[in-house]
Amino acid sequence: MGYVLGGRFDLAEVISEGGTSTVYRAIDRIGLWAREQTPEVAVKVIQPHAKIRQELVELLHREARLLRDCVHRNLVRIYDSDYDGKYHYLVMEFLKGRSLAQILVDRQGRPLSPSVSFQIVRAAGQGLVHMHRLGIVHGDLKPRNIFMTSTGEIKIVDFGTVLMLDGPRHHERAAALLDQIGLLTPAYASPEMLMGEPRAESDDVYSLAVVAYLTLTGTHPYAQWPANEALNANLTPPPPPTISPAQWRVLASGLALNRRDRIETVGEFVQRLGRPPWFYRLCGQRAPLS
């Protein structure tokens, strides 16, 4: 494409383009010179004439600060962010494959098998658990942000909405920016997030449970209603026909519209959901609701 970003990254082709930013496949000249096996990277560039550009720039560099040291096999690697005098940009790992959203669209409403669904939920959940250990909540997990690589790896790929669990002053500033820009996806955000409450790990439990339900049934549990509206309408999703009653009780707990009724941690949710039906029969237990 001709442009060398920051004197280092040769922009090769557009991967995706939105109203405020463009993601490119790029060649890292230093990596190429060092004969690295994979000199390819992905670079997200804020468009210079985008509306609310300053807010987007602030969130982009904040994403790099929070995630550059957050390294896990189920999280796309964030390397750095910079400004070359013309463009603000974020450099990250380049992946080949498809998003879960693309896979579901290609299936035209046909659900995934429980084994495949649980594999995706478990992998994404492990990435979220690692983030939570570092005090970071994702806040906007959805099929578009879960990527399945050509080698079978599953990675979370977008962190523009992350917030710290223990930083109220920074939380207020970042939350205000997210609200102003409208980055949250109402169909996947918890009721508490949509109502502006402080974030908790259980917000990611809710989003992951919605993704799990969608992959198991091909439909959204609350028919794409935002969670706060589903709460006011007292909606209840029907159980997926392909999982056991015990597994449904766990999934329903993850989908709970009141935080007090929801499983508190992603690790606990993934562990319980992945237990086979015979586990509860062997133990003589019902799947706990909280």
Rank of each mutant, 00 (worst) to 15 (best):
I146S: 05
L178I: 13
P114N: 12
A123R: 14
D28L: 06
A287F: 08
L177A: 11
V250N: 03
G135M: 15
A176L: 07
V91Y: 10
L128V: 15
Y213E: 13
A101D: 07
M164K: 15
M148S: 02
L56W: 13
E192A: 08
L67H: 06
P111K: 01
R275V: 04
R259T: 09
A34V: 11
L289D: 08
G160D: 13
A187N: 06
S16G: 08
Y89C: 07
R281S: 01
A256R: 06
I120M: 13
T219A: 15
D80I: 01
G196C: 10
R110N: 14
E201F: 12
M1G: 07
Y24Q: 01
P186H: 07
A212T: 14
G125V: 10
G254H: 06
D203N: 14
V157S: 01
P276N: 06
V210G: 06
P221D: 08
K155I: 00
V270Q: 12
T38S: 04
S207F: 03
L134A: 14
G218M: 11
D84K: 07
E93W: 04
P240S: 11
A233V: 06
Y188F: 15
M195T: 13
K142V: 03
P143A: 12
V4R: 15
L5D: 11
W248L: 02
A42R: 10
L183Q: 11
L90K: 04
Y222D: 04
E40Q: 04
D106M: 02
F279V: 02
A12M: 11
R8A: 12
R133L: 10
W278C: 00
L177M: 15
L184E: 09
Y188V: 09
A233C: 08
